[in-house]
Design a protein around this nucleic acid. Structure first.
Lengths: 249, 249
DNA sequence: TAGTGGTCTAGACCACCTA
DNA sequence: AGGTGGTCTAGACCACTAG
């Protein structure tokens, strides 16, 4: 005879909320395991099925991952977030082996790193007060040795102190795993805003294209578990190489 | 003591397969109700929870919709499939009322309708034999009286006989509901392939733009419940108006 | 009021992973 | 072997919708 609908919502939904808050507050860090179903069920005095329903909700929301036989883990990072997924360059198969081998690994080159004060636009995107300290990275992505994408990346200094220390030339090619390891910032969600434009002169130069060349522009906001915007990024690439598929259901 | 994993899969997954086949074969038409959970559970000699799990799978796959208190229904058609969702034209608020009112309804104008034999490209897209009879529609989409998108739509004649009868000028502006009503073709799934290019002269003419103007090109394949491709469409629009947001989780 | 799907329980047994 | 999540059952009760 349990209270039917506490706070007007289902028991499992309320449980999911509680667990989500505990995750967001850092009680269980990304990559670590939650207590077993049995334990959670006992602790909250509900049946196993009810806890499972709550955990299913959190799974759908991308908060946790469940692995049969191992446990339930706080998700760490989003997969498949590469900007290169929006583009198909003709030379993906120009690697060393001429047969149908895997593509040559994309290259990443940090062109510049500057500590600055946030302009109005950057501050708004990152949810910072005007004039807050931010880190600006300029990054080139290359495929088979050819420069393909240029990125401007803005980060709140406050969260990314560790990135001001060493030489960016030695950073790993994947930023998000590095953010997690060095800065304990886990990118959990992102939204990519796709548009079309003409290449500014400085960007065009880095991509070996002419100024005004048609380009796809992707603006990304990346968020951590708590829903805070931790990165704002603009990516430019040749419009003719742009390609994306949306599935409707 | 039921057989644990028939065919190596869970009972509920096998059940979902069976139900999916019955839906695809047309045993329950789009928009109509399936038997109640209790009935299905009894018929298949499983517990209620098992049937619910199967129905949940079909829900996630977009096959059915469940409505509390009313029943379980075969889904009819996909929502939000308009090509206009890829574009933001500046005049969406130029309607009659100058305040923050709803946008003027988009207009649809069929420019031409031709019965033809499928070229290799069209036949491949629609999964038809080369030379099969197809219907080609040329359609203009307008916003606030301005021509904005041009579409070439290819349909298998076999499925769309009814569209060869009357005047296309009197068709409703939304194609998919019309396909369902007049031809009993229900679009259940689609994939939109986005790229950038330059406007061909004839297309540019209809959009009041110059030939070679940068444009976004969306190629769509639409499928019915059985997974058959029932429409192949190419849509052109001004690249500068293109805008799309992808959410990553 | 009757019928539908939604919630929750309590427990048995299975499959998977690690050690 | 012991712990984890996954499957399935049988049944009670609740919430929503329709006639």
């Amino acid at each position: 005879m349990t209270t039917p609908h506490p706070q007007g919502m289902a028991r499992y939904a309320a449980l999911a909320d509680v667990l989500r808050q505990r995750i967001v507050r850092g009680e269980w860090l990304p990559g670590t395991a939650l207590p077993a179903e049995q334990v959670l069920a006992h602790d909250h005095s509900v049946a196993l099925g009810t806890i499972r329903r709550a955990l299913q909700l959190l799974t759908e929301q991308g908060m946790i991952e469940r692995v049969h036989g191992r446990g339930t883990f706080v998700r760490s990072g989003i997969p498949g977030a590469s900007m290169l997924r929006f583009f198909r360059f003709g030379d993906e198969w120009d690697g060393a082996s001429a047969d149908g081998q895997a593509a040559q690994a994309p290259e990443s080159r940090i062109l510049s790193r500057q500590r600055m004060t946030a302009t109005a636009e950057v501050a708004r995107a990152l949810g910072l007060p005007l004039g807050a300290a931010v880190l600006r990275l300029e990054r080139l992505r290359l495929l088979a040795g050819q420069p393909r994408l240029l990125e401007h990346i803005w980060l709140p200094c406050e969260l990314f102190k560790a990135l001001e220390q060493d030489e960016p030339q030695h950073w790993e090619p994947l930023l998000y795993p590095m953010f997690a390891q060095r800065c304990h910032v886990h990118v959990h969600r992102a939204s990519d805003d796709i548009g079309f434009g003409a290449l500014p002169a400085d960007v065009a130069h880095h991509l070996a294209l002419s100024p005004g060349h048609p380009c796809a522009v992707v603006r990304r906001k990346a968020f951590n578990l708590a829903g805070r915007c931790v990165e704002w990024r603009t990516t430019w690439g040749d419009a003719h190489a742009f390609h994306y598929t949306v599935h409707l259901t």
